[in-house]
Computed example of a mutant assay.
Amino acid sequence: MHRTLWRFFVAATLLMSSIVHASADDGAIIDRWYSALLAADRGELAELLADDVRMTLDDIGVVQTKQDFIASIDEWQGAVAGAAIRHRIEKSENGQTTVLACYDFPNNDTLMRETFTIAGGRITASTQRAVAQDCSGY
Rank of each mutant, 00 (worst) to 15 (best):
I123M: 01
T65S: 12
H2A: 08
L5E: 13
D104N: 11
D25N: 14
T97C: 04
F9M: 05
A125C: 04
K91I: 01
D59R: 10
T110H: 05
V53R: 04
I29R: 13
V80A: 08
T127R: 03
P106N: 12
E75M: 07
V80Q: 08
G61L: 04
S17N: 09
A28P: 13
G137K: 01
G95D: 10
I85A: 04
L49M: 12
L14I: 13
G27S: 12
I60H: 15
E44R: 10
A79L: 04
H2R: 08
A39P: 14
M55L: 13
T4Q: 14
A12K: 06
T97N: 03
V53T: 12
H87G: 06
S18M: 08
K91P: 02
A125G: 12
S72K: 05
H2D: 10
K66V: 03
I29F: 05
T98V: 03
L38H: 10
G121E: 02
A28V: 04
I89C: 01
L14H: 12
A125Q: 04
F116I: 01
I60F: 15
S136E: 09
E90P: 06
T97R: 05
L100H: 04
D41W: 13
V53D: 00
R42D: 07
I30S: 15
M1A: 10
A46E: 03
A46Y: 02
T110V: 13
A83V: 06
A101E: 02
L15P: 14
G43C: 02
A28K: 12
S23T: 10
D58S: 11
A125R: 07
H2C: 01
L48W: 02
Q67K: 07
V99A: 00
K91Q: 08
F8A: 07
L14G: 11
R54M: 07
S126G: 06
R42W: 05
E44C: 07
G27I: 03
K91N: 09
D68E: 09
L57M: 12
I60V: 14
G78W: 00
D26M: 03
I118N: 05
V10G: 01
R88N: 09
A132M: 03
E47H: 07
R122M: 01
F69L: 02
G95I: 03
